[in-house]
Write a protein that binds this DNA or RNA. Structure first.
Lengths: 215, 215
DNA sequence: TCAATTCTTGAGTGACCGTTCAAGAAGGAC
DNA sequence: GTCCTTCTTGAACGGTCACTCAAGAATTGA
C-alpha cells in the first residue's frame, strides 16, 4: 500500500520535499505493463520487472508498494489506454447495439493482434493460471471481466426494450456469447492469429445477431 | 527421460525384477492431472504434486523423469480421456460436418463445466501464461491446439467438396471461428460459467454456419 | 548552514523452487 | 542365503522468489 495519499489535504505548494525520484513513473509503468501483458502476473518476476524498468527493488517497493499493487496500477493504466477503452468508446459512439457490438469485435481484431504491443487482452489473459497464493489477483481480473459482461448485458437489454432486438432475444445469453468470442479471439491472437484472421472470426460471430443480418 | 524403454525387447517373463513400486501409477497420474488441470503447468509446484500424489520427490523423479515429462504424460492421458476425445468422436460418428460441429459445441458445454473435474480444456488453459524458461511447454500445447484447428479445417474442406457447404464458404475461417469459440467457452467455464450458459453460447455460435439454420 | 524528508543503492532476508543423491528396504534370480 | 535390481526415504543441492533494510545521496524548508 503506497503512502502517496499523504498528499491529499496538503496545504499548497506543488513542490515535493526530499530527494526527487530518478525515474519517470509513467515510463517505468509502461515497461511493467509490457512485461505483465506478455507473461501474465505470476510468470513475471520482480527481478525481470526491475531489470526492464531500470530501477532497483528498493525503488520499486518504495514507489509502488509490492508486486500486486504494481500490477493493479498497471491494470488501471491499461484500462485507460486505447486497448482498454475500445469497448466503452463503441457503446458511447455507436447509435445502435448492433453497430456497437460489430465495432467492438472489429476493434478487438485489430487491437488484439496489433504488433505494437503484446497480443490479446491483458485482463483476459494476465492471470489465466495462478497458484492459490495469487487467488486475489485472479479474482480481481475475474471481476473486471464480469463487470464487462454486465455492461454487455445492460446494453443488450436496453436494445431489446427499444425494439432493436426482437422480444425473443436473450440479452444475457448474447452478452455471454460475445464475451466468450472475445476471450477466444484474445487467446487466438496469443497463439499467433493476425488481424485478418480475427476479423473473419468477428464477422462470423456477428451472424448470431438476432433477426437476420440486416439488423 | 524415463528408462522404462529397457523393457522393450526383453526376453519374456512379465514379472519385473527389483522392488515393486508402492503406488498405483494411474492413480498418481490422476492426482497430477487434476492439479495441472486446475492450476496450469507453471503454477503447480513439484511439492504440491508430491503432496497430492502421496509420494516423495525421489519417487516422482524416478518414475516420471522430471516435471515437464510428467506433464507431457498427463496431457497424453488427458487426450485419451472423454474430455480429450469428444472432438474426434464427433467427427467419427456424425454423418455431416454440421452435425459434428454442433455436437462438438454441445459436448464442450457439458464437459467444460462438468463439476467432476476442473473446468475448461486443459490443453487450452494449462500454459496460458508462462515464463521464458517454460516456453517449450507452451509451444507443446500451442501445437496441440494448432493440430486441432487443422483437423477442423480439413473436415470443413471435405464438407465443402461434398457440397455440404456452399462454394462461398471459407473452411479456414470457419475452423478458426469455431476454435476461438471453444477457447472462449473454456475460459468462460473457468470463470464459473455452467453448462446451461455454455450451451446457449454453443447454440448462438452455430448460427454462423453457412446457408441458414437448416443445414 | 543544517535539519528534515525522500529516494537510491547494495547487500541480504527466509522461503520455496525443481532436482539430486546416498542409504536402506523390498522384491526376483540363483 | 546372497546377489542384483528397483523403489523409497530423508536430507540435502544451488538457484530464484518476493521482499527488506541500513546507509548514503539529493532535495526542500528554515
Amino acid at each position: 500500500m503506497s503512502d502517496r495519499s499523504k498528499m491529499v489535504g496538503m496545504t499548497s505548494t506543488g513542490t515535493r520535499r526530499g530527494r526527487p525520484p530518478a525515474f519517470d513513473r509513467a515510463a517505468v509503468l509502461a515497461a511493467a505493463t509490457r512485461l505483465f501483458w506478455e507473461r501474465g502476473y505470476q510468470a513475471t518476476s520482480v527481478g525481470e520487472l526491475t531489470g526492464a524498468m531500470g530501477i532497483k527493488p528498493g525503488s520499486l517497493y518504495a514507489a509502488f508498494g509490492d508486486k500486486e499493487s504494481l500490477f493493479r496500477e498497471v491494470v488501471q493504466g491499461y484500462q485507460q489506454s486505447p486497448a482498454g477503452q475500445f469497448v466503452g468508446l463503441a457503446f458511447a459512439e455507436e447509435p445502435t447495439a448492433r453497430a456497437a457490438f460489430a465495432r467492438i469485435l472489429r476493434d478487438a481484431a485489430r487491437i488484439y493482434a496489433d504488433p505494437e504491443h503484446p497480443a490479446g487482452c491483458m485482463v483476459i489473459s494476465a492471470a489465466a493460471n495462478v497458484a492459490a497464493q495469487d487467488d486475489e489477483v485472479a479474482a480481481f481480473l475475474r471481476e473486471l471481466r464480469a463487470a464487462n459482461l454486465a455492461v454487455f448485458e445492460e446494453r443488450l437489454s436496453t436494445a431489446k426494450r427499444l425494439g432493436e432486438l426482437p422480444p425473443t432475444a436473450d440479452p444475457a445469453a448474447l452478452a455471454r456469447y460475445f464475451g466468450a468470442v472475445l476471450q477466444g479471439m484474445s487467446q487466438r491472437s496469443r497463439d499467433g492469429a493476425d488481424t485478418a484472421e480475427l476479423t473473419a472470426t468477428a464477422e462470423l460471430a456477428m451472424l448470431a445477431w438476432p433477426a437476420g443480418p440486416v439488423g
